[in-house]
Design a protein around this nucleic acid. Structure first.
Lengths: 97, 97
DNA sequence: TAGACATTTAGAAAATCATCTAAATAAATT
DNA sequence: AATTTATTTAGATGATTTTCTAAATGTCTA
């Protein structure tokens, strides 16, 4: 887990789509799989990368594993990008100084 | 140039450091090179990736080429991340609805 | 408990990537 | 004009990544 892992995780289109699908709520691996034309093994790999990066959490519920978006790391990345733009952490930036 | 290229460009630590160095203003390739222990050829490669992604601009000034941060694409990425969090484009998000 | 279902792990192949050295281009200096 | 300086391009190499098939693990149901 670290900045590097998060950015690496985000650099793959399948993984970004997974995050996008999870924005509305949890989903099992099988549900997610319907949206892609890759094998379950490939999806599983992508999920493990996202999990290692801290971008998703998983919870086993019987036969299924449900994945949920974790926005904590996203916030860190957002802050890093804001700092590049010279915008401070919590600023709303509606006015220009 | 596209979303994918931008994220790929951001997934390398050297390239992120380049962007970080450029946040205070333009710099030539040679100036940037001082901050890394890679060859000029490698740096040049990284700069071309960043440029292709639209994250930096370059301008030739005689013997030197000056690179500047371009925040347009960063804004697109920021918006994409905000949308993941369920936050709309320009919202300040200081209150919870 | 045997079989079906959901998901992961292992291992391999092909593609992509970061880096290097060597050579090329282009502008400034002497 | 020849040399030096700044940077890029070309081509090669080793590392990492994405994907696959096959097999393993764990859980539910008939």
């Amino acid at each position: 887990m670290g900045f590097q892992d998060s950015f690496k995780a985000l650099s793959d289109p399948t993984r970004r789509e997974i995050l996008h699908l999870l924005r509305t709520g949890p989903a099992s691996a099988g549900e997610l799989l319907k949206h892609f034309s890759i094998t379950g093994a490939s999806l599983s790999h992508h999920l493990s990368v996202l999990k290692y990066a801290g971008l998703i959490d998983d919870e086993k519920k019987g036969k299924y594993i449900f994945y949920t978006l974790n926005t904590t790391v996203l916030d860190d990345i957002l802050n890093w990008m804001m700092s590049l733009k010279g915008t401070e952490k919590g600023e709303s930036n509606h006015e220009k100084p």
